[in-house]
Each structure stands twice: as structure tokens, then as C-alpha cells.
Write a protein that binds this DNA or RNA. Structure first.
Lengths: 183, 183
DNA sequence: TTGACAATTGGAGACGATCTCCATATTCTC
DNA sequence: GAGAATATGGAGATCGTCTCCAATTGTCAA
């Protein structure tokens, strides 16, 4: 998914160091000049720019890692399809709430890049969970994954609201209620 | 709400011209250097900076105007409280979809400033509509306006999704379904 | 191991956007 | 209409972004 093209050992090391440094900085909600990420990762500016031509590219790489971690959780659950979906949605909020700084930064920077890589990974996971839940009769069949994504998007980008954490949880419950099969 | 402090006539004129120019530029999704807004409004850079110290401040002023226009609609409706709320929510999506460029720019820039002015105006409107709908037994009583705000936030900030418009409409229907009183 | 070649690096400096400052111009008050 | 208060504009300082290439480091065949 990332780059099957083999990177020279030092290049890969530097790349990873940069992503790790950026992740840490984002998570702490620190504000950095783009060049500073280089210093922080112990590499030169040139290196930073070769690996990540733009701030968005860097954010996308961090985002990618986060999303993968998040989606991996969806596989381990042994509940019914309906419960599975609900657990994933609630887990999503918990994760995002736990990493507010990260969410804030990523939401601000990553939007356009998201379509390409990690965005679809998240969407695929949601879509799969929903398809199974529909087959199980647990949720309505007439709702596309995209609608759910829009709500999740809101959770990720409303971090500046004073009462964001609890409101986000409430929004997910609202979402789950809306999805429920009322047949 | 904006500034009760009297501004000199020329100052007010310039301020308005800047906001109008910015609104137009945002709506067209044009990308501008901050200084260019000055030229566009026919004023000097200094004037721009005095009125709007930051890009955010300018975006917030535009946002403020938009939100006011939006909330004014809520007053004219003569339906039942429940229908009223639904109409407002659907109207919100329509408006935002209609002005995607504006939404995109504002969502990207305005986040922190939103709390102060226009943000609460929107939230107040939603809260009022919800309170009435609850009183009328049309929607659940256990959902705070904040949860709805988070969803609306998602609609405003997911503009980069390829199928954003229809997904946003679907998200609102999901929201309305979730709010429905299932008693 | 070693030499030759390719990939990668670092950071000085060019570039360009942002923002400050203040002499001048406009509006307001009496 | 004079003086005080307020607002203006844009030249230039400032500072973050990004390019470029000589020097370094990793790779691999012999």
C-alpha cells in the first residue's frame, strides 16, 4: 500500500523517523514550521522534502498509519455483524477522542490527500462492516457507506468545539440509531 | 453582534468591500495570497490587516454573514415544529452544497474562530428548533444540539469527497432518522 | 574485501508570502 | 472651517518554504 518500491536502507530509516517525529508533534498539538520536522527527525531539509514534497504528503503518511491501526481492530471482533459495526463506530470515536491533537491537525491538513490512500481504507472497512450488518438484518439496507463517512468526518473535524468529546459520542449514538433497521 | 463600536464611514465601507471580495473569491474557490484580497477590494494592504489581522479573522467575518443568512430562513417557516427542524436541516445541506467553494474554504480556515460568533448563532438556531420539536413530541428528548452540530460539521468539511453532495443529503436523512421519536 | 556506481543526504541561499510602520489623507466634531 | 481623531496605503523588513548540488553513504558484482 505504501511503497513496494524498495527504498535504500538509510532512506527508509529516515522516512520512518520523519513520520514518527511528525506523528508525535501532531499528537502533542505542537505548531511547527515545516522545516522543523526535519530537525526534529534528525535529518536535513532536503531529505524531508524528497520524502514529502508537501505538508499534506507528510500528514497523509501519518494519517495512513493511524487509519491502518484503526481498521485492524475491526478484524478482531467476534460479535454479531450488527454489534461489530457498532463497536467499530464507537471505537472510532474513542480513538479519535484519545488523539485530539492528531485529529485536529490531520483534519486541517489532510483533506484532499485522503481520497487516495488511507481514506478509502477506512471507507472500505466501514462498507464491509455495513454490508455484513445489512445481510444480517441488523441495519437498514438503504444507507450508503458514504453517508456514514460524512458523519465520521464531522467527528474528526469538530475538535475545536468545547464539548467535542461527549458530543462526538452522542453523534455516533445518533448515527447508530439512524442506521437501525426499523422494518 | 459584529461591532457596536462606531466605525468611521470610510472604514466601514472598506471593511464591507473586503468581506464582499473575500466572499466572492471563496465562493469561486479561487486561491489567493492574503495580500491580494486587498487589491481585489481596492484597498491597501495596511487596511486589510487593520480590519482583519489574520486570514482566519477574514474567513470568520464571511462565515458570520453566511450563517446569519442561513438562520434567518428558520424563522419564516410555518410548519409543525418537527417539520420545521427537518426543513432547516435539509435546507442547510442544500445551501452548503450550493456553495461548495465557500464551505471548503471556511471549513479549512475558520474552525477556531467559529466558537465565538457565527458558530453559536447556528447552534442556537438548531437548539431552538430542537427544543420545539421535542416539546411537540416529534423527536427524542435525549439528544443535545451539539451532536447534531457535529454532523453538520461533517457535511461542511467533507467537501473533498467525490460524491459529497449526495452523501451529505444521505447523512442528513440518517440524522433525521436518528432523531425520530421511537417511543 | 574492494571498487564502481547509484541512491541519498544536508543545508546554504533564492524565493515569495506575510505583516509592520508611519507620513499622508479622510472623516468627524464643534 | 479648524483641529482632533481616525483611517489609509504601500515600501520594505521578516520569516517560512523549497531548490539545488557537492559530498556522503549504501549496494552489489567480481
Amino acid at each position: 500500500m505504501t511503497e513496494p518500491r524498495s527504498l535504500r536502507a538509510d532512506a527508509r530509516r529516515n522516512r520512518d523517523a520523519i513520520v514518527a517525529a511528525a506523528r508525535a508533534a501532531f499528537d502533542d498539538d505542537e505548531q511547527f514550521r515545516f522545516d522543523d520536522f526535519a530537525a526534529r527527525a534528525g535529518v536535513g531539509v532536503g531529505t524531508l522534502y524528497r520524502h514529502f514534497p508537501t505538508r499534506e504528503a507528510l500528514a497523509a503518511a501519518v494519517y495512513q498509519g493511524e487509519v491502518t491501526a484503526l481498521c485492524d481492530r475491526a478484524r478482531d471482533s467476534l460479535q454479531s455483524p450488527g454489534e461489530n459495526l457498532n463497536l467499530f463506530l464507537r471505537g472510532f470515536v474513542d480513538y479519535v477522542v484519545e488523539h485530539a491533537g492528531l485529529a485536529r491537525t490531520l483534519a486541517a491538513v489532510v483533506a484532499p490527500a485522503v481520497q487516495s490512500d488511507g481514506g478509502s481504507q477506512l471507507e472500505d472497512t466501514v462498507a464491509t462492516l455495513m454490508t455484513r450488518a445489512v445481510a444480517d438484518g441488523a441495519i437498514r439496507h438503504d444507507v450508503a457507506a458514504g453517508a456514514v463517512m460524512v458523519v465520521l468526518h464531522g467527528i474528526g473535524s469538530a475538535t475545536d468545539r468545547p464539548d467535542w468529546a461527549s458530543e462526538s459520542r452522542a453523534a455516533v449514538e445518533l448515527l447508530i440509531a439512524g442506521l437501525a433497521n426499523v422494518a
